[in-house]
Amino acid sequence: MSEYQYYEFQALDRQLSHAEQEQPRSLSTRARITATSFTNTYNWGDFRGDPRRLVERYFDAHLYVTNWGTHRLTLRLPRQTLNLPTVRPYCLDFHVDAWTTRTHLLLDLTSEDEDGDWIEGADDSLASLIGVRDELAAGDLRPLYLAWLSALSARELEDDDEEKHQTRSEPSVPAGLGELTAPQRALADFLRVDNDLLEAAAQASSTIPKKPAKPTKKELAPLIAAMPQKEKDALLLRLALGPEPRLHTDLLHRLRGTIALAATPGYRSAAQLLDAARTLRTEHQQHIERERAKARDRHLTALASEAGSAWQQIEAHIATKKTSAYDQATDLLAELRDAYAHTGRDTDFRRRLSHLRENHQRRPGLIHRLDHRGLR
């Protein structure tokens, strides 16, 4: 298998100047670079640049995917929209990291799984994830909590130290973990968040009164009316000067101060969450097994009711004298045996099987297959 590394960077809040585009160009002559993006795929060799530095200086989002199991998403947000003290409780080792520059907060989310499945071609992955940046800027902490769950799963696999899990507490739990947005669902998949662990975490989230995904007109109207006239004029001027991606986010952040964010302090330890996830996993597996058993019962009942047709199919397979047909006949006979047993007619099956073996005793290939499957 050849090597596969995919790099993508996106500039969202402003376009890069021609001079700024030249800096990434000096790092990769094969990359596709525009005023808002940098993308490149490596099947040999490595990217010469430092993704962290590129995001700090030029880009607002970065995606990195490899065929050895690395999934990495880096986001840059203006410091006034998300502060480091809010993010720190969700940080865990290198899986969830955050730092600041003079103007921005950087959030780095990583999932590693060398044994995980991967698909070569991550071109549309960042587009499905980028929405979490606006959600974070608007005060929705669910993406942070999802990243923390992903890191917790990784820690369980890397270092199954029960004492550490007992002493590690969960961060604040945001409302709505059981009703993720499309970008949040994509993030959970990208970071390989365990579904049972997410369900266990959402049990606490469901008790939190949920705020609407966006502030309502009723909430915003009095807040806007109370804004100083000078500040309103400045916002209108920015709007009049042309499209500005950050304007909507900045305005909501300015108004958000008096809109309470729905979250509750975490009260469970990591060990409690992991234990709850294991319990759910066992319950789900038992449910799956019960459903499979029910489906199997229905199949055997239906097959027993159509036994005459099944015996005719078996004879037709045998009549072809082909080895592949012998295999099909043997498989169907094994199913019939189970169907007869399921309906309490074992004696009838043994009688029919004995008759079939007697009629075809000169077919050693068939007899060998029947003996191998215990159809004696």
Rank of each mutant, 00 (worst) to 15 (best):
K322V: 11
T323S: 12
T323F: 00
S324I: 12
S324G: 14
A325R: 10
A325L: 09
Y326N: 14
Y326P: 08
Y326R: 05
Y326T: 09
D327V: 13
D327W: 04
Q328A: 11
Q328S: 11
A329C: 08
A329L: 07
A329D: 07
D331V: 12
D331Q: 07
D331L: 12
L332Y: 00
L332W: 00
L332P: 01
L333R: 00
L333A: 03
A334S: 10
E335D: 11
E335P: 04
L336S: 01
R337D: 07
R337Q: 12
D338Y: 00
A339T: 01
A339R: 01
Y340L: 05
H342D: 00
H342T: 03
T343Q: 08
T343F: 04
T343H: 00
T343A: 07
T343M: 08
G344S: 06
R345F: 01
R345W: 03
R345K: 14
D346T: 15
D346Q: 12
T347N: 14
T347G: 13
T347C: 11
T347V: 14
D348H: 09
D348N: 10
F349H: 10
F349A: 07
R350D: 15
R350A: 15
R351L: 13
R351P: 02
R351H: 12
R351C: 03
R351D: 07
R352Q: 13
R352K: 14
L353Q: 06
L353E: 04
S354Y: 07
S354V: 04
H355Y: 07
L356S: 03
L356T: 03
L356W: 05
